[in-house]
Design a protein around this nucleic acid. Structure first.
Lengths: 123, 123
DNA sequence: ACAAGTGTACTAATCATAATAATACAGTTA
DNA sequence: TAACTGTATTATTATGATTAGTACACTTGT
């Protein structure tokens, strides 16, 4: 389900874009499946339609969706570029986390331990 | 050297706090060593004294420094609480990065590879 | 043709945060 | 006493996110 977390410091439109991208990549949203309309989702989440529109514009810019004038926004069938971008971002994030941990004096063996746990966590 | 990066999206006062904390934990700043004065550092970095003051207040709140009225701010000799907080944050960040990577379909073996490289990087 | 729905565009107003600016104050030091 | 310390206060500016309201071109179903 598409949702928004107000405790999250990221802008709402960014949360929506990331959220929907994840749902598309996981298959929870199928290729060519139509997203809820801007106005409909705005009512559902009780936020401004312009914020939804901004998120949808971002999704199209990132290659996650395509737009048909007068019809709506749909999940792209080719998500390879979005998937690559996401993986690249995740790898950068991971590398940064490793270097940060090293600077804190965390041993490499400890990181290896943590991977074992974190990688198999449900969530 | 204490510095500020305007390309960084984090607030200046936060950058300063993190920067000085890292210098204290690495030993680049010794226990009981006096930090540059609010006004002096403001001139040096060409930013407002209030921004420095905010960073110094944060550092004291986080247990990195102590303040002597009329004298200045000094590095705390006991940095264990700050070190623990920093390590805890780094571990959380690392765990998040691992789970994000897994969600992107990155194999565990790939992460193990990347640790080998990232952990030994200079920077 | 018509009405209702789609995304998009535009301007304005509001709000929160960061940063600047200019003082002022209490304490310390020489 | 003079010059320095951190701190506090108030006001102002800048920026980004969000809200608000409106308008437009397009598609769909009647």
């Amino acid at each position: 389900m598409i949702s928004v977390d107000y405790k999250d410091k990221r802008p709402i439109y960014e949360q929506l874009a990331v959220n929907i991208t994840a749902m598309a990549l996981s298959g929870e949203l199928k290729p060519d499946e139509q997203l809820p309309s801007v106005r409909q989702l705005a009512v559902q989440l009780k936020i401004n339609p312009n914020t939804i529109a901004k998120a949808y514009a971002e999704l199209e810019r990132r290659g996650v969706t395509y737009t048909v004038a007068g019809k709506g926004s749909f999940i792209n069938s080719d998500l390879s570029s979005a998937a690559k971008a996401q993986q690249s971002a995740a790898e950068n994030n991971f590398t940064e986390a490793v270097m940060q941990a090293r600077l804190c004096g965390i041993e490499k063996s400890r990181l290896l331990e943590m991977i074992g746990e974190a990688y198999d966590t449900d969530k």
